[in-house]
Write a protein that binds this DNA or RNA. Structure first.
Lengths: 130, 130
DNA sequence: ATAGACCCTGACACTGGTGTTAAGGTCAAC
DNA sequence: GTTGACCTTAACACCAGTGTCAGGGTCTAT
C-alpha cells in the first residue's frame, strides 16, 4: 500500500510515517517511480511504534528493540526492561517535581485568599495595581 | 552594579540576565560606555523572577505582574490568581497523564516479569534476539 | 601600551515529534 | 492533454530558557 493509505489506516500522519522512516523505524520498499510501498504488516508496525511513543520512549530508543518485539514477545527482548526501568525513574522524578510545584502553588493561592479575607476589601483585587 | 556582579550575587547566569531584560522583566540603566548598571534592588527582582520561573510560569506571564508584586503583596495583584489557577490545572493534567503512563509501564514490567518466571529460563534474557 | 578581565550584540544549538509549505514529479480518468 | 489527487524531497516553525561562540569594545593595572 502507499503512504496515504497507511496514514488513513493507522490514523498517523504522512509526515510522521516519513519521520519514522528517517529514524530507521520502518523501511518500505520503493517503486520504480520513487513511491514508498508498504507491506500489509506495516500497519501493525506503526501501531507498535505509537504504543511505545505513548509510553514516552523516543524514536531512537524504539529503534533499538523494535525489530525484536515485532518478532517476539517483549519479555524476550533484553533491551526493553532497562528502558522501562529508566523511564519509570524519570517519570517518578517528574511526578515528584510536579507535585512540589503543585504544593507550592496551592500554598501561595491559599495565602492570597487568606490575605484577601483578612483585609476589609471583599475580593476587590484592584487596589494595589500601579 | 554591573551584570557580572549581579550574576554572582544571584547565581543567575549573565546570559539569563540579558534574556530577562529582552523579555521586559528588568531594565538596567546604561552607562556612557554601554554597560548595564543595575540598582541594588535588582538582586531582589531577579530572585523574584526565579521564584516565578520555578513555579513554571513563562517570562511573558511574569512580565504581566512583576511590577505589581515588586511593589505590593501578591494578593493585591489581580493578574496572579488566574495564572495560578490555570497553571494548577495544567499541572493536574500533566500529573494525570504521567500517572497513566506510570501505571502502563508498571503493568508492562510486571507482565514481562511474569512471562520470564513462567518459562524455565531464569532471567536469561537473550533467547529471542535475532 | 599591553595583558587580562569584563562588557557589548548577534546568532546558532538544544529537545523531538509534528504541522506546514514550497517546488516539483506521477498517474488515472476524463 | 489536462485536471486533480497523490507522491517526492527539503526546509522552516514550534516551545522557551539557557549554553556557547564569534567578533569586537572598555577598563585597570602593570
Amino acid at each position: 500500500m502507499k503512504i496515504g493509505e497507511l496514514a488513513k489506516l493507522t490514523g498517523v500522519s504522512v509526515r510522521s510515517l516519513r519521520y519514522y522512516e528517517s529514524q530507521g523505524l520502518i523501511s518500505p520498499v520503493r517503486l520504480a517511480n520513487g513511491y514508498r510501498e508498504y507491506s500489509p504488516l506495516a500497519a501493525e508496525t506503526v501501531e507498535t511504534i505509537q504504543l511505545y511513543l505513548n509510553l514516552g520512549l523516543t524514536t531512537e530508543q524504539i529503534a533499538g528493540f523494535l525489530h525484536c518485539v515485532l518478532k517476539n514477545k517483549e519479555a524476550f527482548c533484553a533491551e526493553v526492561m532497562p528502558l522501562y526501568e529508566s523511564k519509570l525513574e524519570e517519570i517518578e522524578r517528574q511526578l515528584h517535581q510536579l507535585t512540589q510545584i503543585k504544593l507550592n502553588l496551592e500554598e501561595r493561592m491559599a495565602s492570597i485568599r487568606r490575605e484577601r479575607e483578612g483585609s476589609g476589601a471583599e475580593f476587590q483585587a484592584k487596589s494595589g495595581e500601579e
